[in-house]
Amino acid sequence: MRLRALIGAVAMLALCGPALAADFTIRLSHGDNEANPTHLTALKFKELAKQYTNGRVDVLIFPSNQLGSEEEVVQAVRTGTVQAQIPAMANVHPFAPSAGVLLLPYLFNTSAEAHKGLDALLPQLNERVTKEGGIRFLGILEKDFRILTNSKRPVKTLADLQGLKIRVPPNQISIKTFKSWGLDPIPMGWAEVFTALQQGVLDGQENPYTTAQTSKFYEIQKYITEIHYQIWTGPLLIGERFFQRMPPDVREAVAKAGFEAVAYGRQESAKQTEAAKVFLREKGMILQGAPEDEPKWQEAARTTWPDLYASVGGEAWAKTAVGVIEQANKQ
């Protein structure tokens, strides 16, 4: 109900003021605040879309889930009531299973490796997600690896991890990964996590450095381990039906704007990640780097891949995607 009301109000606003000068209005939703790289990516897309289309496209940005949850808005983009979005890949996966291949544990080892692989895979990925979900990826934002924080002890080895109560997102990829490490993870919605950590229901969680900063985990967590099991990715996506209604020259310009905006967002994310590390150290958190036995973590996590293939578009697609990523990083 809230989503429909807000979309209706936005539609009325789009008929007034400067938006009248544009041939196409793109309402872009995301779930982060205005300091986050996600929002900076959206602002750059707005700027470049206007520039490359000579003002024919106007982008209206709605941060902090103003139009509804990420899952609700993915559905709205599919039907055309919202035109674009930058959600976490895990929230796209249920609507376009093939996108889930990017969530496989230890698919990437570094951000630079991820950038090459994501860009190389984009055309083939779009062949699939346009059919599966009615959405198109203009580019894929990356906001560094999800790190492990906890309040109990330094985690330098797999043995140190045992017995900790760790929250994971409620998806099978994260759950199976942590189980492969001998843990019984606790799936939990994001809104409950801080309180659960504060009350001792949880000992730790995993998210990027910037999230540890903006969510003030330094108030209730002490130790950070760079487990590198999954890099945060989120597509700048647009509804395929809306995209195809635009003339070819406008489509080309919008696609170019999206791809370049994502590259800009990655740069901003890298800067914020380094700043977050400094900030968290100053707040007393102990940053330990990677586990001493990280190859064991990687080996165990990758044993889950065959069990996950069916949920990420099938074994053939998963192996094709991995091959494209590996080839891109050989060049």
Rank of each mutant, 00 (worst) to 15 (best):
M246G: 13
A270Q: 09
P247C: 06
R281K: 15
Q267Y: 08
T273K: 02
R245H: 10
K256S: 06
G258D: 04
A253S: 08
Q267G: 15
M246E: 06
T273A: 06
E282T: 11
A263L: 12
K271L: 14
R266N: 13
R251L: 11
A276D: 05
Q272F: 05
Q244K: 14
A261S: 15
A261F: 03
K271C: 08
K256Q: 12
A255T: 08
A261K: 01
F243R: 05
R266A: 10
Y264F: 15
K256M: 04
A275E: 14
Q244E: 11
Y264T: 00
Q267S: 09
A257H: 10
D249W: 02
Q244I: 03
A255F: 09
V262T: 11
M246L: 15
K283A: 03
E252P: 00
K283H: 13
A275I: 03
A253H: 09
P248N: 01
A263N: 13
E274K: 14
A275L: 07
V250Y: 07
R281A: 11
E260M: 06
V278Y: 09
M246F: 09
A255N: 10
R266M: 10
F279D: 08
A276V: 12
V254T: 08
A261L: 01
Y264M: 02
K256N: 06
D249Q: 13
L280C: 12
E260W: 13
Y264V: 00
V250S: 06
K283V: 00
D249K: 06
R251Y: 07
Y264E: 02
Y264H: 11
E282R: 14
A263E: 13
Y264I: 02
E260Q: 14
G258A: 01
Q267N: 10
R281Y: 01
L280M: 12
M246S: 11
P247T: 04
E268M: 15
V278F: 10
R266H: 12
V254W: 13
E260Y: 13
A261Q: 03
Q272Y: 05
T273L: 01
R281F: 02
Q267R: 12
T273P: 01
V262Q: 08
T273H: 02
K271A: 07
R281I: 07
T273M: 03
F243V: 05
A257L: 06
R251I: 08
A257N: 03
K271M: 08
A257V: 07
T273Q: 03
Q272D: 04
Q272W: 03
A263K: 15
P247D: 10
R251W: 09
R245G: 09
E252G: 02
K277E: 12
E274P: 02
V250Q: 07
F259A: 07
E252K: 13
F259E: 05
P247L: 09
G265Q: 10
V278G: 06
T273W: 01
A255K: 11
R266T: 02
G265E: 08
E274L: 12
R281L: 10
F279W: 14
V262G: 11
V250F: 04
F279G: 04
K277W: 06
V278I: 07
D249A: 08
A255R: 10
L280H: 11
A270K: 07
A276T: 09
